[in-house]
Simulated assay, not measured.
Amino acid sequence: MMALVTTSPQTPPVRIPGYDEGPFRHQPELLDDHLFWQVHLHLSDTHDLEAEALLSQLLGGDTWPVFTVPLAGDHRLYVVYRALEGEAGIDYLVHHPDWDEAETLAQDDGHFMGPGLSWAELTTAADNGLPGGSTIDPHARLMLLLPAFGDDAMPDDAVERLTAAMRARTRVEAPERLAAARLAYQGEWGPTHWTTGARGYLINDGGYSFRNPANRFAWPTARLAQVASALTP
């Protein structure tokens, strides 16, 4: 069953095969809201009433906000705010038109799964400039996908890169300090080691990752290879 994301008349409907909860609504306008980023990146403290209200709206409203990022080879990455009572969270999904259903890349919730992206893959998706998604802005894409990332080998300029995005898209004080703290905290899974496996594609050793072939719930070999190719820098 295909899920339908309600959009404006100018925007083609977004369908996520195999992901049939909902109702969905494509909401790219949220990416221009500085408060959204505080919520999405867990930058707000528990006393921020505005952030609490927005989080309640995102994860407890009548619609599920959805964002999209195109990837190489006609793949697409979806970020879905799963406003399901008792099971709310954020799902990161990847899909290709030839697949029967989307694959879960990562889950940001109480039953977390991930990471789904290395640092190089994260920045590649942010910078690819491919049209057809919620935004082509690299700063917005970087922060949108950041919660799905985990990598124990970041480059020296990683904090600088995230700081620039925060300065461009948020109103937080001391963005460099917050960027460093956010990169030190890499989801519930923590920093994960990525390597090129024997078959020539990127895998990791995360105990909660679909991209660790040692896990019983890992994707099949062909899918691991295809997704890695779509995300290759």
Results as ranks from 00 to 15, higher is better:
residue 70 P to R: 02
residue 77 L to N: 00
residue 9 P to I: 07
residue 32 D to S: 11
residue 45 D to E: 11
residue 78 Y to S: 04
residue 55 L to N: 11
residue 55 L to S: 13
residue 65 P to G: 02
residue 46 T to H: 14
residue 15 R to A: 12
residue 76 R to K: 11
residue 36 F to E: 00
residue 57 Q to C: 07
residue 19 Y to N: 00
residue 14 V to N: 00
residue 15 R to I: 07
residue 2 M to H: 13
residue 28 P to A: 08
residue 81 Y to S: 04
residue 40 H to V: 03
residue 78 Y to H: 06
residue 37 W to I: 01
residue 40 H to E: 01
residue 40 H to C: 03
residue 51 A to F: 05
residue 8 S to R: 14
residue 8 S to K: 14
residue 28 P to I: 09
residue 70 P to C: 06
residue 10 Q to H: 10
residue 38 Q to I: 06
residue 25 R to F: 09
residue 77 L to S: 00
residue 61 G to Q: 07
residue 48 D to Y: 04
residue 76 R to L: 11
residue 8 S to W: 13
residue 10 Q to Y: 13
residue 74 D to N: 14
residue 42 H to G: 15
residue 69 V to A: 04
residue 54 L to P: 01
residue 3 A to S: 14
residue 43 L to N: 02
residue 65 P to W: 06
residue 79 V to W: 01
residue 30 L to W: 10
residue 42 H to T: 13
residue 52 E to G: 10
residue 74 D to W: 09
residue 48 D to H: 07
residue 66 V to R: 04
residue 84 L to Q: 12
residue 84 L to T: 10
residue 59 L to F: 10
residue 39 V to W: 00
residue 63 T to M: 14
residue 46 T to M: 14
residue 25 R to Q: 12
residue 31 L to E: 05
residue 24 F to Y: 14
residue 50 E to W: 12
residue 39 V to G: 02
residue 39 V to L: 02
residue 46 T to N: 13
residue 84 L to S: 10
residue 46 T to S: 15
residue 30 L to Y: 10
residue 67 F to V: 06
residue 43 L to T: 05
residue 25 R to T: 04
residue 72 A to Q: 13
residue 7 T to Y: 06
residue 3 A to D: 05
residue 4 L to C: 09
residue 58 L to Q: 06
residue 22 G to I: 06
residue 38 Q to V: 09
residue 58 L to G: 03
residue 68 T to R: 02
residue 46 T to K: 13
residue 60 G to H: 05
residue 25 R to V: 03
residue 83 A to N: 06
residue 72 A to S: 13
residue 4 L to P: 00
residue 76 R to V: 08
residue 72 A to P: 01
residue 49 L to Y: 10
residue 50 E to T: 11
residue 3 A to H: 07
residue 8 S to N: 11
residue 84 L to A: 11
residue 55 L to G: 11
residue 15 R to P: 04
residue 51 A to Y: 04
residue 10 Q to R: 12
residue 51 A to W: 03
residue 82 R to M: 07
residue 7 T to V: 07
residue 40 H to N: 01
residue 13 P to Y: 11
residue 41 L to H: 02
residue 82 R to H: 15
residue 43 L to F: 06
residue 19 Y to V: 04
residue 51 A to C: 05
residue 63 T to R: 14
residue 15 R to E: 12
residue 14 V to R: 04
residue 84 L to P: 05
residue 26 H to M: 08
residue 13 P to I: 06
residue 25 R to G: 02
residue 53 A to C: 07
residue 75 H to F: 10
residue 59 L to S: 04
residue 80 V to F: 02
residue 81 Y to F: 11
residue 38 Q to R: 15
residue 58 L to F: 03
residue 49 L to G: 05
